[in-house]
């Protein structure tokens, strides 16, 4: 089955690389310099975002779609909060 096979997770890995590369391009165009620890913050936000969708799907598969949707919303709220923190970190102007 495609969705639990190694090839699927390989594709997910490739997509993650593309997403990170695209964000780096986006950041460079704006002249942002992202320290490694700020980058980890961003990866955490994206990880929570992505896993919320995985959790939603898993609970749909278990017949608990309603609970899955609530957990998705919770995950998105958490990832938005993390994402907002990340955004603030990378757009903050250095102190004079």
């Amino acid at each position: 089955m495609f969705f639990n096979g190694g090839f699927f997770w390989f594709l997910m890995g490739i997509l993650s690389v593309v997403v990170v590369a695209a964000f780096r391009a986006f950041a460079r165009d704006r002249g942002w310099r992202i320290a490694w620890w700020k980058g980890l913050f961003g990866i955490a936000a994206y990880f929570v975002f992505a896993m919320s969708f995985y959790a939603w799907g898993t609970l749909i598969g278990e017949g608990e779609g309603g609970a899955g949707f609530r957990i998705l919303v919770l995950g998105i709220v958490i990832s938005l909060a993390l994402g907002a923190g990340f955004w603030k970190l990378i757009t903050a102007k250095p102190a004079d």
Partner: peptide, 26 residues
């Protein structure tokens, strides 16, 4: 590349939902 990144987020989200459904039903 930036467009591919945005599309990648959408495809990844959709793929993870599908993989999750598979995991939940397995």
């Amino acid at each position: 590349l930036k467009l591919a990144g945005v599309a990648g987020v959408a495809v990844q989200a959709g793929g993870l939902v599908a993989a999750g459904i598979r995991a939940g039903r397995s």
